[in-house]
Design a protein around this nucleic acid. Structure first.
Lengths: 214, 214
DNA sequence: TAGATTGTTAATCGATTAACAATC
DNA sequence: TAGATTGTTAATCGATTAACAATC
């Protein structure tokens, strides 16, 4: 099974993309696909796809290819989408609200169970059926509900102190949208940084290069 | 200069992070830093930092290290943050509004010059001083203002058709937030996908692994 | 000058691609 | 069975790390 050799993060980062493409293939009624065909659709090499999938097991069949629905389900399991992890959102500003409304947590392995903000005006409002609580209540909430993951949509200045406060409460993973670089220096703590700002600067770089070429 | 050998995308993706850390060092009043010290702060190797920076030029001084402000400015220039590229936003829903309000476009090399949505109710509303226009007006707006970049905050079903519509209007780069995988198959067109959904699934994977270990 | 730290070359490591025997 | 396509090993490529001479 999986744990025999550690899976490289390059492979892991490709899994959601496979999952997405396979989901679309299911919607369009396809039944089977070869690594060759999939590589065309995804702009990868067939070799890489086979290599990637074989980190987890032999999901294909020689001479046939892969059963799309089966492979989709297997990758879903590998990604842990077959069970829900409780998550809380810290920060119900523009971004926090957009993330709450926009993300399909249920189909991505999570359940949003609490929303917190320190702005009194937001407390009591409902976002997607969930009432915003004051950040003062984080401790008691975590003690009762034991969420494992926190989504951080707060200013970068608050990120360090909030994460230091959440870790002793049992939070093991952070989905960090703040422009602060949360490093996973605590052993056993997982950080997934989004860094939209870095993404925008990368685009700026590429656009600049394009203009230089002309 | 830069163009002698193509810079690998691994290096480019690290540049915004350098830029961010250097900016913070400036705020905290530091003047100079060695690759060693910076590598500690950023959890990299000193070797990698020197290697990365030397893709663009010798910004350091033997025996001294790097002047933080100078290096910050140089990286800013490399990223193209010293001039503004006009951008339009397509989709003024939750996510589009959050992106508009949340991102510091001015300091990331862009200026947001137009916002479009097909929802009549949103048309005429103002977001950050910019009035939302109906998507019907995209053509005339682009002909007049010639924006180079489009930010896509629209459902995945609309992404392909909108991008096909924007490219003939002179849009050269896409910052794509939709869950659709916009591939840069058109020559000369740049795509930067955000894929928050993939990021969330990656977190799900890591959390699952953590739970298995226990 | 001596000490520090860069820029840069060489060595290592890891990831991707190619090839092909196994097998459905 | 013959054809197709996988799983897997070997070859290649690229990125990271180590080492050190150059030099401020």
């Amino acid at each position: 099974m999986a744990n025999s050799k550690a899976i490289s993060s390059a492979v892991i980062r490709r899994l959601p993309r496979y999952y997405r493409f396979l989901g679309e293939l299911i919607s369009s009624g396809c039944i089977r696909i070869s690594s060759r065909e999939l590589s065309d659709k995804m702009s990868l090499t067939a070799s890489q796809i086979r290599q990637d999938l074989n980190c987890f097991g032999g999901f294909g069949q020689q001479g046939y290819g892969y059963n799309i629905e089966e492979l989709h389900e297997e990758i879903g399991k590998i990604l842990g989408l077959d069970h829900k992890t409780d998550a809380i959102l810290i920060g119900a500003g523009n971004l926090g609200r957009a993330v709450t409304n926009h993300m399909d947590f249920d189909n991505r392995g999570f359940q949003l169970v609490g929303i917190f903000d320190q702005n009194e005006e937001l407390v009591g409002q409902k976002i997607k059926e969930i009432e915003v609580m004051h950040t003062n209540n984080i401790e008691s909430f975590c003690q009762t509900h034991s969420p494992l993951v926190a989504i951080l949509c707060i200013p970068k200045t608050a990120t360090k102190s909030i994460s230091d406060r959440l870790i002793p409460l049992g939070i093991k993973g952070f989905w960090n949208f703040s422009h602060y670089d949360l490093l996973d220096r605590h052993p056993g703590i997982i950080v997934e940084n989004v860094h939209m700002s870095d993404s925008l600067m990368t685009l700026s770089y590429k656009i600049s290069q394009l203009q230089k070429e002309e």
